[in-house]
Each structure stands twice: as C-alpha cells, then as structure tokens.
Design a protein around this nucleic acid. Structure first.
Lengths: 131, 131
DNA sequence: CTGAATCCGATGCGATACTG
DNA sequence: CAGTATCGCATCGGATTCAG
C-alpha cells in the first residue's frame, strides 16, 4: 500500500511514536541489551509490548536483532544500528522541550512526574553535549 | 489525575502527537487563520477533527483562540502563542529527519509521497534557516 | 529465557447530520 | 461560517496464557 505523509514530522512519528520506543532506543544507545535486561530497565512494560515495539524498530532499521549462537541457552541481543543513532539529535531536542514543558506545568500547580532526563539520549552518537 | 512521563519525549508527543497538529502549527506559524482557511489549507481534515485538535492545542497553550467581535458574522481566528513558537526547532528537526527517511525508503523501492517539506516550519520564530 | 497467540479496553480519527 | 452530537471503526497498548 502506498503511504502519503503530510510532512516529515509524520514520518518521524511513525518510527518513534510508540509509547516505549524512545526509552528502548535510549537504553540501547548505551550498550546492546538482551530482552530480559530491557524488561528490567523499563519498569511497567509487558513482554508483548516490548517484543512488538522491538519488531517495529527492527523493521524500521533502527535496531538489529543478533542471535548469539555459541551460547548454552540461545541468547538474543539487540543493538542500535548506525541509522538508529541518527535519531539522537531529534530525540534530544524533543526530550529537552518536554522537560521544560513539564517544569512549566508543575509551576502552574499541576503534579507531573518525569522519570528520566535527556542525559540518556546524549549517549547517542557524538552526544551533542547539551547542559 | 497525576501524570507520569518516562521522559521528555513523551511529554512532547502529548502535544504534537496528533495526526494533524504539526500541519496546523505549521500553517498558523505563517499567519493567524480562521477555521475555514485551515480546512482549505489542510485537505482531508474534517470539521470535527479540526476543532478537536484546535481545542487540544489551546488547552496546551500552543495557540490562542481570538473572537473578533466587531464583525458582521462573528469570526474566529487562531494564532500561535509565543510558547507555540518554541516548538519551531523541534518540529524542524523532526521534519528534516523524516524527509531523509522517506528519501531512503523510496530508494529502496517503496513508493511514499511527502506532500510538504520542512520549509513551512522555518517560518516559526527566527526560523533557523536550514538548507 | 525468548517470544508468539489471543482476548480486550481505551482512544484517536473519521463520516454524517444538526444548531446558532 | 463556527461549533456540537452521535455513531463507528481501526489501532495501540495491556493482561494472560502457551510454546520452543
């Protein structure tokens, strides 16, 4: 089927729009991880949702699925592709803007919690070291 | 109810994640527009969806709703707030990345159409003039 | 330990028709 | 012309269960 995007933003959201995808990318940016590691690193995610979103990211070329064959229990590892690292700047910008927004809202009396800062995304590629 | 975000990216997606919101912001970045104008500027959007997403953007402080009182048929106009303009850089980055992605996919034999480039977002604030 | 299968509720988006 | 109300559908994310 032929896709039509209004603009590049839609195309980007197709890739990172999933609820947990930014977190997954963030963790894999530091080092390759196995599914068990990811589940522990991302509290609240379920088995299905994790594998669903991992599959999406694989199909979009953001991560690689690597089967380690010479191990006793067959192990599976996921790692960011070089294409995946190109998302670093975008995620960084989005994370920073979102943090400022949360800060604003909380000043206006709302009670919003932000579990992780943007430092995680700075690990990707050169990691444009923003304060 | 208390909200909890994993990271800033989620908070940002809450604001611009709607299917048409980037387009709406893009058009309002150039000049204030009335609903009829927006419907004509955004082919495919329906009345309901447009007003739904406009209301969301108002509640999030991205746009202002201005009722022009001294006109024969009561007119309503929408304009970007200064807070809304702060989204400029983020949308720009996302649009550029998405455009490159579409280009890559089309080179791989897919047939994806991209209606608008990132130029529209350059109108926001200083409009960090990227090529 | 990895991950596939099934069921299900919430929600976003859309079509249509109606009010001021 | 601006906005609302109702209905419907598709998609996403989540709980649970089963298999290699």
């Amino acid at each position: 089927m032929k896709k039509v995007y209004q603009n590049g933003v839609e195309a980007t959201l197709d890739v990172i729009g999933g609820k947990w995808k930014p977190m997954i990318i963030c963790h894999l940016a530091v080092q390759p991880l196995r599914t068990g590691d990811l589940r522990r690193a991302i509290p609240g995610i379920t088995q299905k949702v994790l594998t669903d979103q991992l599959r999406d990211l694989i199909n979009d070329g953001i991560i690689n699925r690597i089967v380690l064959v010479n191990t006793a229990p067959c192990k599976v590892e996921y790692q960011l592709t070089s294409y995946g690292t190109s998302l670093g700047d975008v995620l960084m910008q989005m994370s920073i803007w979102g943090e400022q927004r949360v800060a604003n809202l909380n000043q206006d009396g709302q009670d919003i919690q932000l579990l992780n800062g943007h430092e995680g995304f700075s690990k990707i590629q050169g990691g444009s070291s923003v304060s």
